[in-house]
Write a protein that binds this DNA or RNA. Structure first.
Lengths: 127, 127
DNA sequence: CCTTGCCTTGACGCTGACGACAAGGTTTAG
DNA sequence: CTAAACCTTGTCGTCAGCGTCAAGGCAAGG
């Protein structure tokens, strides 16, 4: 499997795969002419990476999951390092959710205030 | 009031104020030697900008609020354009909160799965 | 032989809100 | 006289995850 095929099967681009390789996440054999050659394992690795990035992970967060897959596990989640990252990420998400909740509250009250102000202005105009 | 003083009073940096000016948000008179000179109104403008950026607005989102203040209003929130942006931002925040909630769910289930897997492994080892 | 369509490395662009520095002018205090 | 502490414009760097050329090599079909 060459880079174009892997890219298509994983739903991404060759550029992206080279990028992952440059950052030590994906590995490739080389054919005689220097082309990157991948096996099915790499396909699963790339899909794991994509799934985690989509959820808001950074490349560094993904490393333990890739290592876990390479260690022969069916899922990248089951290794201790992955679990640590999972817990941390959940905590991070919780923090952001809380913050956004507070922001939402504030914006809502600003909006309420603005509407109330407009009401008052209209009423004064009507008099 | 020169740029350094305004920066300090607004809790930001001269660089930032020049940046806002370059993007048409803050205005300054010029003294004979070419220094930027600000009045109290600009202080309020800068504080409005900062408050909104802190909440996750972009510079473009802030423009209507600044215009609203410049139009003589006590609050930047009360003008129609500001209200439009407020509503849009609240909607955006809602979307992100929902997405993060789903992400949190997914991560939690991954974590649960990983823990369960580890339990099974330990049990097998104990046998 | 020539085109088409893969592949290679290398390098710059992008988004946003600035930080950091360069190289210089001004004003004030000692 | 000079150092300190302001100010000016201009340019590059930052973070992340790539997109988008550029310039070239390799393989196969007509």
């Amino acid at each position: 499997m060459l880079i174009g095929e892997l890219a298509e099967r994983a739903g991404t681009s060759p550029r992206t795969l080279r990028y992952y390789e440059a950052h030590g996440l994906v590995r490739a054999q080389r054919s005689a002419n220097g082309y990157r050659v991948y096996d099915e394992t790499e396909l699963r690795v790339v899909r794991e990476i994509r799934a985690l990035l989509d959820v808001g992970f950074g490349l560094d967060d993904v490393r333990p999951f890739v290592a876990c897959l390479r260690a022969g596990n069916t899922s990248g989640d089951v290794c201790p390092d992955s679990v640590v990252v999972l817990r941390r990420k959940i905590a991070e998400v919780d923090v952001v959710i809380d913050r956004l909740g507070a922001v939402r509250e504030q914006l809502h009250s600003q909006l309420t205030h603005a509407i109330a102000h407009r009401e008052r202005t209209c009423l004064r105009r009507q008099k």
